[in-house]
Simulated assay, not measured.
Amino acid sequence: MNAISAFSQSQISKILEARHHDPFEILGRHKMGKDDVICVFQPRAKKVTLEGGHAMQRYHKTDLFLWRGDGKTLPRPYTITWVDDTGNHHQRVDPYCFGPQLSDFDMHLFAEGTHLHAYRFLGANPKTVDGVDGVLFATWAPNAQRISVVGEFNDWDGRCHPMRVRGGSGIWELFLPGVNEGAHYKLEIRDQHDHLHLKADPYGRAFELRPSTASRITADSRYQWNDANWQQHQQQLDWLHAPLSIYELHPGSWQRDDDGGFLDYRTLAHRLVGHVRHLGFTHIQLLPVTEHPLDASWGYQTTGYFAPTSRFGSPDDFRYFVDHCHQHGIGVLMDWVPAHFPKDAHGLARFDGSALYEHEDPRKGEHQDWGTLIYNYGRNEVKSF
């Protein structure tokens, strides 16, 4: 009995056509009698070898490669080496040799609409699994037929890294070893009508500078805060009876640099703090600095709620802005826009080919004056978002 007989032709076809909702049924490591079967799908590969020098056999003329043998000769997890069609060599730990990573408890709270920090398990979160560093990608898209992580690390090819769906939760996940901080990525979604959608991560914590729209992987922040005195003062402050005076501004138009460009967060902090202190204000209120595609919206049409806009710098640059204000006794308030979101193709609109974050009925789901969509807060998962 050869290795391919462990799988049905229907399962194999779904992998080859990038339609499988659970690629782990085929890809990765499987038991076959006393042997192990390893299945790898590697587009544009000329040759694939398993750790230990085990050559994998191509299935017919496809990009599916198989090996059958004594699993004790392979470590857990194992590494794959391949030569692409241009002769370049590549090596990675097989992402399909890892088990599910998301906890049932997190998914339960999310479905219940009571998860208070869903961004910590959805989105792209650096993680170490079985001693291997990588990134855990996860998203909610219950009506998708297939979702893949695409990015610079796989030439934006949706066939390379399809995700697994977690039962009836509508949540998809994939742990990708070796993906580094700063890499750009999106989610390629095949809907129930076989249409493909290329979406930014709803839980992305950094994005490309517009007009580009990819999400960007960020590691846990290493920023060193210096506002301990401010935090201690806030704990002791009788805020109900303390004076409050707020200076509101749009960071993109308050001042510009000598060339007419935007000030970055750090420069803005240094110019702004002295000004508002001189005028006697206690707080700064920023118009929305969440990521948004259109300058003219002043941030009120958000596509990235978990990321400070890259127009003015990095997430750590924004942390510096807040820190600098606190060190000089100035509080920071931020506008936040949960009322509506834009229809941009890379955003939340019909995220999985259906009205997911918005109402299906346009009388409820569309803001006619702004040409934007309205959140469907009747869905628990939208509440958790």
Rank of each mutant, 00 (worst) to 15 (best):
N2T: 09
F7M: 01
F7W: 09
F7D: 03
Q11L: 09
Q11C: 15
I15T: 09
H21K: 14
H21P: 12
P23F: 00
R29F: 05
H30T: 09
D35Q: 09
C39R: 06
C39H: 05
C39E: 04
V40P: 00
P43A: 10
R44W: 02
H54Q: 11
A55T: 04
K61I: 13
L64S: 01
L66R: 05
W67I: 06
W67K: 02
R68F: 04
G71I: 00
R76I: 10
Y78G: 07
Y78L: 11
T79C: 10
T79Q: 10
W82T: 01
T86A: 12
G87A: 08
Q91H: 15
V93A: 02
C97D: 06
F98T: 08
F98S: 01
G99N: 00
P100C: 05
F105R: 14
M107Q: 12
H108W: 14
L109K: 11
G113V: 04
H117S: 15
F121D: 07
L122N: 01
L122M: 09
L136C: 13
L136H: 05
A138S: 14
T139I: 02
T139L: 03
A141D: 02
N143H: 14
A144W: 00
I147F: 03
V149P: 03
G151Q: 04
G151E: 06
F153P: 05
D155I: 08
D155C: 15
H161T: 04
S169N: 05
G170F: 10
N180W: 12
E181C: 14
R190V: 04
H193E: 12
D194I: 03
L198M: 12
A206I: 06
E208D: 10
R210W: 13
P211E: 04
S212T: 02
S212W: 11
I217R: 00
A219C: 12
Q224R: 10
W225E: 08
D227K: 10
A228L: 13
D238A: 14
W239Y: 15
Y247I: 09
G252L: 06
D257K: 13
D259A: 10
G261V: 03
F262K: 10
D264F: 10
T267Y: 07
L268C: 04
G274M: 06
H275T: 03
L279C: 15
G280A: 02
F281R: 01
L286I: 05
V289Q: 02
D295G: 15
A296Q: 13
S297P: 08
S297Y: 11
Y305M: 08
F306W: 07
S310T: 15
F312L: 07
F312Q: 07
S314P: 12
D316E: 13
D317K: 15
R319C: 03
V332Q: 04
V332R: 05
L333K: 11
P338M: 08
A339Q: 15
F341N: 07
K343N: 13
H346M: 09
G347T: 03
R350I: 00
R350W: 00
D352T: 09
D352S: 09
G353T: 03
S354G: 11
A355T: 06
Y357W: 14
E358K: 08
D361Q: 07
D369Q: 11
W370F: 11
G371S: 12
V382K: 00
S384Q: 03
F385P: 06
